[in-house]
Design a protein around this nucleic acid. Structure first.
Lengths: 223, 223
DNA sequence: GTCGTCCCAGACGTCCGACGTCTCACGTCA
DNA sequence: TGACGTGAGACGTCGGACGTCTGGGACGAC
């Protein structure tokens, strides 16, 4: 195994074992390199790799720190990876979202506050009846994220965020050319919101499932 | 933005745009560094980072290649990230698994072959009535993976693999000290298998849910 | 002709030393 | 007391040198 890979494993070990805790500062590069028995260049490759996936936070002129290691932060790296997938796997990602999002929406029904409901309603109102594709994609993202965030499970929230981030969603909408796609989407969003306001978890789950299923159906037909 | 980060973005762009396709070989480090306008050292940091998340495959003495970019491969990096999460987030991961796994198990009911059913049954038989904790963890992993793989969705499969890989599962079992945990788990596995053999998707889903819920319950009580 | 072996060009792996750039903290001065 | 300048120290980048490994071609035995 290359010394750089060893260094990655050792740094990982120091964090997992608790020797390095979230927020801790690492020894400076030259010292850590000496301690791990490799050159500064090779160590930097290890640090850079761990920094890409948000394990470490490198600040020029200051030092290198362990991040908070929050699920939200670590799963951010997921969207980076998801960007690489080819178009022909979009349907598989959508199928996973179809499993997760209805569950998250149902969980939100019991927890969402009146204030948050009003915020979501305001979003939909501002979007109007005939938004542009860019506005719709942004609004769609914001709407679902707002709901999922109140599910109370940060892992679930981050996972959905990563799986259906801006890039994926844009790819989906690029494939949706049907006339009534926009109006049906807006209608379904309002139905989900109404179910949440009624605290009806099952209705919310069903509307969320139907919402994603219809997107899936359109997409399957247009591929 | 640092030159290394720029290099990461440029290489990502080359892949996403299709200029570099899965399996393609990159120019040698010195040439690519010159083309991107940075030193070989800095370029290596970028390549190393992309290699950690399985975007690139570096072979000493040969060259650097784009991987297959299969969901299965890319989501492998997920388990690396999951290893860093603290114990207090295990329940959140388990809650997500409780959403995904029943769905995957239900999907498998319609697709699993008689041969695969026999393989799973053989696994359970070999495990016996009183396996060690290590054997049980390994068997548990193998059993669920065998089912999920027949769901037909590689993204779903890889995601579950990453979320509940060896490390996470070992952490869960470490917390399970109750006497009847082992026998109840084995019983539930057999129930899931019976439902699959009956092609009863709803029964399979319910048993999978109950199975994870009981693990969740034990874990919550023992934390 | 086929197969196995040897050898080497070429690519990645590692290291060193130097210098640039940025932060933070400290001390100065109004 | 506050703003400002300055310097030590950390990361950022570079070029070159050498080590290590792989793949493929040349060569010879069968």
């Amino acid at each position: 195994m290359a010394v750089t890979d060893e260094a990655i494993e050792k740094i990982k070990g120091m964090i997992v074992s608790g020797a390095l805790r979230p927020g801790d500062r690492l020894p400076k590069e030259s010292e850590l390199a000496a301690a791990l028995g490799l050159s500064r260049n090779s160590l930097r490759e290890a640090v850079r790799a761990l920094s890409l996936i948000r394990i470490l936070d490198v600040r020029q002129g200051d030092g290198t720190y362990v991040t908070s290691l929050d699920p939200q932060l670590l799963l951010e790296a997921l969207s980076f990876v998801v960007d690489f997938h080819r178009d022909d796997t979009v349907l598989e990602f959508l199928a996973v979202r179809r499993i997760l999002e209805p569950a998250a929406t149902a969980m939100a029904a019991a927890r969402i506050s009146e204030q948050q409901l009003d915020v979501l309603a305001g979003q939909l109102d501002r979007l109007g009846d005939a938004p542009s594709v860019e506005e719709l994609v942004a609004g769609d993202l914001e709407f679902h994220r707002g709901i999922v965030q109140t599910s109370g499970n940060s892992v679930l929230c981050s996972l959905l965020d990563g799986l259906s981030g801006p890039t994926t969603r844009a790819r989906v909408w690029r494939g949706l050319t049907q006339e009534d796609a926009v109006s049906r989407t807006l209608h379904e969003h309002r139905a989900i919101l109404a179910a949440l306001r009624d605290r009806d978890a099952e209705a919310a789950r069903s509307w969320a499932t139907a919402h994603i299923a219809s997107v899936e159906q359109w997409l399957r037909a247009s591929l």
